[in-house]
């Protein structure tokens, strides 16, 4: 099934998403990687997050951004980064900040999917490496914070138009496609290497 969503995302919209569905997302998407998540955690624990994240999407992405002559930013390439590194920030992102969609690649684990189920959020993937295509959906850099962390680690606030196709791989109904595939693969690896399988 295909969904056209616009931020802010409601809980009802998240509940309608199922693993395997395709989403095209418009609205506000905020990038955050390792260092940005650490800083978000520090600020949120003091009750002072740098912006309102409610109903928005966090994008695990460290983009290449060029500053043009008039001082505006041009996003050159902006595909997803490996989400597994950010697993332990899920509670912060979903429960504390109120983010409804996490976008990344490679999937997230059991802890993350449980938190997302409980607080009604979903995980969506873009094909890793497809940075040139993803950049096309980014219409404007609305804001950037924390450039002291370096270009890839800064918090980029993007306005996107039909970012996608995003594939739903963790939904609120208990499914986590990444873990399902890994579980089967590990089982198969065992059988293949013990010679029990032709």
């Amino acid at each position: 099934m295909e969904h056209l969503l616009h931020t802010p995302i409601t809980e009802d919209e998240v509940r309608r998403l199922h693993v395997g569905d395709i989403v095209y997302l418009s609205g506000i998407v905020v990038t955050a990687r390792d260092a940005a998540h650490r800083r978000l955690l520090q600020l949120a624990s003091k009750g002072a997050p740098p912006m309102d994240f409610k109903g928005l999407a966090i994008y695990h992405c460290g983009p290449i951004v060029k500053k043009s002559e008039d001082g505006s930013y041009i996003v050159v390439s902006a595909g997803p980064t490996t989400s597994a590194r950010l697993e332990h920030f899920t509670e912060l992102v979903v429960k504390v900040l109120g983010v409804k969609l996490i976008i990344g690649k490679g999937g997230m684990g059991k802890t993350a999917s449980e938190i997302m189920r409980r607080h009604t959020a979903a995980y969506l993937t873009l094909p890793g490496g497809a940075g040139a295509i993803a950049a096309k959906a980014i219409k404007r850099v609305v804001d950037v914070k924390w450039l002291d962390l370096g270009m890839p680690e800064a918090l980029w606030v993007f306005e996107v138009d039909s970012l996608g196709p995003l594939i739903v791989t963790i939904d609120t109904h208990g499914r986590n496609l990444h873990l399902e595939v890994i579980r089967k693969a590990v089982e198969k690896a065992k059988r293949l290497s013990s010679g029990n399988l032709k």
């Binding site: 290449i64 595909g79 094909p127 890793g128 940075g131 950049a135 196709p165 594939i167």
Partner: peptide, 28 residues
């Protein structure tokens, strides 16, 4: 199906990167 859809996008991404002279992936 999901694999095919993503492979198509990956191939298209490479074509765009080459045509527009921009990095294929942001992680260079």
């Amino acid at each position: 199906e999901l694999a095919k859809r993503q492979l198509e996008l990956i191939i298209k991404n490479c074509e765009i990167a080459s045509k527009e002279n921009v990095p294929i992936c942001q992680d260079t």
